[in-house]
Simulated scan of single mutants.
Amino acid sequence: MKLQRIAAEATTEAGPDAVWALLSDRSTWPNWSPLGSHSGVQPGRDGTPDGLGGIAQFVTGRTCVQEEIVEREPPRRLSYALLSGMPLRDYRAVVELTSAGAGTRIRWSATFLPGRPGTGWLYRLVLNRIFRGMVAGLAAAARTRS
């Protein structure tokens, strides 16, 4: 099966610290994104909910996913891996924040292998739509907050 790649980008007038404050607190994600409810499953190795190794659950409609933080570089980069909830393998998402003048460029990308042959296009389509909502929502929320 072929490795699938998706990405969405947005720019906000808010600075990287304001964007990072929202991005690094997964409990805020349902407030500004298409995701449904959030709950912490396991704290990170540092004892905080969203530290390295922290596991969270998101429920959106009938879909319940669990994701683990696998990389944190404040205020530039957050990466997480899908543990369960979708028939995908080796799913890893990366959110990168870069300065763009006085604001911030947000790039949310992921790679994955479809769990079943012939389904990669469908998951690319669905996840691209979700990622567009994620970056647009994060950009707007950070602008409003700052």
Rank of each mutant, 00 (worst) to 15 (best):
M86W: 14
G120H: 13
G118A: 13
I106C: 05
R76Y: 11
L88D: 01
R107I: 12
P34Q: 04
R72L: 15
G51L: 10
S84W: 12
A81H: 00
L78S: 01
G47R: 11
V94F: 07
S27E: 14
P49V: 06
T119H: 06
Q57H: 04
E73F: 04
R45A: 06
H38T: 03
Q42K: 13
E68I: 00
G40Q: 15
S33L: 10
T63S: 14
A110I: 09
P75A: 06
D90E: 14
Y91P: 00
W108S: 04
A93Y: 06
I69V: 15
W32Q: 01
D46H: 06
P114D: 07
T111E: 13
R116E: 08
T119R: 04
R72K: 08
T48C: 06
A93L: 02
S39H: 05
P74I: 09
G103P: 03
R76G: 00
N31L: 15
L82A: 03
G53C: 08
E67C: 02
P117E: 10
F112G: 00
A81E: 02
S84C: 10
C64F: 00
G118I: 13
L83F: 12
D46C: 09
L88A: 04
R45F: 09
V95G: 01
L82D: 01
G44F: 12
Y80I: 01
G47K: 13
L83V: 07
P75W: 11
S37R: 08
P75M: 10
P74N: 08
S37M: 03
P114N: 08
G85I: 02
E96G: 04
G53H: 10
G40Y: 07
P87Y: 09
D90Y: 03
D90M: 03
P34V: 06
P34C: 03
G47Q: 14
Q42V: 07
R62F: 12
P49E: 15
P117V: 14
E67Y: 05
G53R: 05
G120D: 11
A81D: 02
Q42D: 05
R45N: 03
F58Q: 00
V41E: 12
G61H: 08
D46F: 06
V95H: 00
G120E: 10
G85E: 05
T98N: 05
V70L: 10
G53M: 11
L35D: 04
V95C: 03
P74V: 09
G51V: 09
P43L: 13
R116W: 14
T28L: 14
G101Y: 15
A110Q: 04
R89T: 01
L78K: 00
Y80A: 02
G120Y: 13
L35M: 15
A56C: 13
L113V: 04
R89C: 00
L35S: 10
G103C: 13
S33E: 11
A56F: 15
L78H: 04
S99A: 15
F112Y: 15
L113M: 05
G40C: 12
G120K: 09
T119I: 12
L78M: 14
S37C: 07
S37W: 10
V41P: 01
G103F: 15
E73M: 03
T48V: 14
P34M: 06
L122W: 11
G53A: 08
